[in-house]
Write a protein that binds this DNA or RNA. Sequence first.
DNA 1: TGCAAGTGTCACATATCTGTCAAACACACA
DNA 2: TGTGTGTTTGACAGATATGTGACACTTGCA
Lengths: 228, 228
Amino acid sequence: MKPFIVIAEDEAAVSELLRYNLEAEGYEAAIAHDGEEAMLLINERVPDLILLDWMLPKVSGIEICRRVRARQTTANLPIIMLTARTEETDRIRGLQTGADDYVSKPFSNNELMARVQAVLRRIRPALVEDIITVGDIMIDRATHSISRAGTDIHLGPTEFRLLEFLAQHPDRVYSREQLLDGVWGSDVYVELRTVDVHIGRLRRALMINGRDNPIRTVRQAGYSLRKN
Amino acid sequence: MKPFIVIAEDEAAVSELLRYNLEAEGYEAAIAHDGEEAMLLINERVPDLILLDWMLPKVSGIEICRRVRARQTTANLPIIMLTARTEETDRIRGLQTGADDYVSKPFSNNELMARVQAVLRRIRPALVEDIITVGDIMIDRATHSISRAGTDIHLGPTEFRLLEFLAQHPDRVYSREQLLDGVWGSDVYVELRTVDVHIGRLRRALMINGRDNPIRTVRQAGYSLRKN
DNA sequence: TGCAAGTGTCACATATCTGTCAAACACACA
DNA sequence: TGTGTGTTTGACAGATATGTGACACTTGCA
């Protein structure tokens, strides 16, 4: 399951950008525009991480931090404080109040993502799902192994990532463009047709000892991994 | 010592099969047929893992999960929920309540075992035992000695630590970066490729009198020590 | 001081994977 | 049944990643 992150940030531009980036990295994110909303969100569903603006309307960030820490169920919930202030004293105060980390605005997306990952790793080592199963296909990311109906299957790096990607949303059809973006990365340029070739290779690997083809071709649209 | 697993599952056919399979994999398992029994078992001896049916007579699975989490001694006890339901909401609810993973019935034995291992792997990071065995390789930390299938093997300090590190989570793939961090320390700077060289040396040492290569290379990902 | 053992780097040898193409093949539609 | 379009597939020439021998340098010890 995707880690769930609450963004408590008043400024719409910042919070939307954050959400966009977090979701692109595979997190689920919800936005609260003030302190009250944030507490509601947190009560409703305990997040895996809070990105918390220091200055927040209604209930201040620092107060939220206190309340979160005071409660049993959320006492260890990781918090990253966002703040415009850069002075050492504020940093110390933030950390004293119980924030796990601290990023001052303006921050680079890279930096923030790195911190988010670091904090999640530290607090709860393996939030990313280690094992995904789709039908009789099993993907174990920790051991980097794939099996189908119990038989181990060897895949090259690209096919591995491709399967991993398709498996995140079984039955969902991905266009070649989306696959290139998600598997190869948006910065490299390769022919669209290359996707077909890799799909073919993946198919051949998965159709081991006479099993059926688990990848569906949707003409004019793309490919999807069958759920059943 | 064998990891001890409590199976809280009403249906006799399922629970017996589970016990059989778990014991075949080298775990010790006890069965509870309802929620009360489960709590008794857990109180009597804290297990390493609970396989918990969502629907359980007397005290429900979800309630057990809560109680286990509420108590200090068992707060971090890994729980895998078993359930017939497959809906996303249930899954979320299960994970929210504090289950570490989730398997929906009917499940394949392979999948369940993989998940059991994954959960144990991540929750019990480094069991500080003096002697670790992985396959036919034995590491004695007390005497700092290694043997394979009974034959003593001499390793340099770095190769020793490398093997020790890999052996903590057999089959798990470590990237070169992780290995540098864990074996060399995050403060020293050495070339990434140095890892390869040491892996090579370790391999040569371990492949004594014609034994097979116990270290798997995963292209673009890293290395792992084979369990079998 | 000399020696033995261990280390990190490099350069080259190998192994493996990739992207592209073109020809073969499927499919929808007239 | 023919036609145009989209997909599959085998072959292949790089491109990349990994394996490994050599070597210079350090360290601990006799």
